[in-house]
Write a protein that binds this DNA or RNA. Structure first.
Lengths: 136, 136
DNA sequence: CATTGACCTGGAGTGCGCTCCAGGTGCGAG
DNA sequence: CTCGCACCTGGAGCGCACTCCAGGTCAATG
């Protein structure tokens, strides 16, 4: 097995059929093979490429940059250095993203704990209590 | 010091003035104080709240859910349980997000290494070389 | 007293990344 | 032969989260 219908490809890649067409239209997928009646036939290679696109997309790479990357890939081995640079740059951004998420997650957990503390206190009993930061 | 102009607030909070107005308009900021001539005057409390909004926003919480959260906060201590649940749910999503990013980052690093390997090989020398996955 | 600059309002516009639609084609099942 | 279905195309539409704009107010400055 090594060729897939649009529907199969959508299912395996996680992109919708519309998105697959859209990606081809804008040049992220460049010339997908067609059968006798003009329907797309995706290969294992296409699937692998879609996997890469998915990975980049979900880590927040904008389409414009994925486009640049796919042009490099089409450019052949001569572009390996540039591809490495592009991916390294992206890798750094992902690293930052993770670090920021971790710290923000810290804030969220802190807030949860704060609420837990307040929830524990006799709720509502002390009518005029001056719980200073009660607003948030 | 405990009150800030829109410009100061924008700078300290990291949201643009337009975004601050927008957030007030849709109810994320509910009734910011005004001076004699109708200009907004932000307090330290507002700043703190904006910090929280920023944290939620940057961890990917949609505005609709932040809205729900701010309504809970306005609802007072009676909503503590719900707030905890909401934040816990969000915390879980952030955790997932981080895990996914880590694994996708793994794929990216793997790809970089693959390229490094290929870049090391005598580039272009072996004219008809059958480097199977050369397409990606 | 005129100007400047920060701010105000309601509402329109923008960019991104899809997603949907109308109208049409070709193939296999009944 | 007729259906139904998966697919095709070009192009319009959408949801989100802002961002920008026109026209106006007000306080301080020269």
């Amino acid at each position: 097995m090594s060729s897939y219908s649009p529907a199969e490809t959508a299912e395996k890649s996680g992109f919708s059929i519309d998105t697959l067409r859209y990606y081809e239209k804008i040049g992220l997928l460049a010339r997908i093979a067609r059968d006798a009646s003009g329907r797309r036939v995706f290969s294992d290679d296409d699937l692998a490429w879609l996997g890469m696109l998915r990975c980049l997309r979900e880590t927040g790479m904008p389409i414009a940059e994925m486009l640049r990357y796919s042009e490099l890939v089409r450019g052949g081995e001569a572009t390996l250095r540039e591809r490495i640079e592009l991916l390294q740059e992206h890798d750094r951004r992902v690293e930052d993203q993770i670090a920021r998420l971790r710290s923000q997650q810290g804030q969220i957990k802190w807030k949860i704990d704060l609420y837990r503390g307040r929830a524990g206190t006799g709720a509502g009993a002390v009518a005029g209590a001056r719980v200073s930061a009660a607003r948030t």
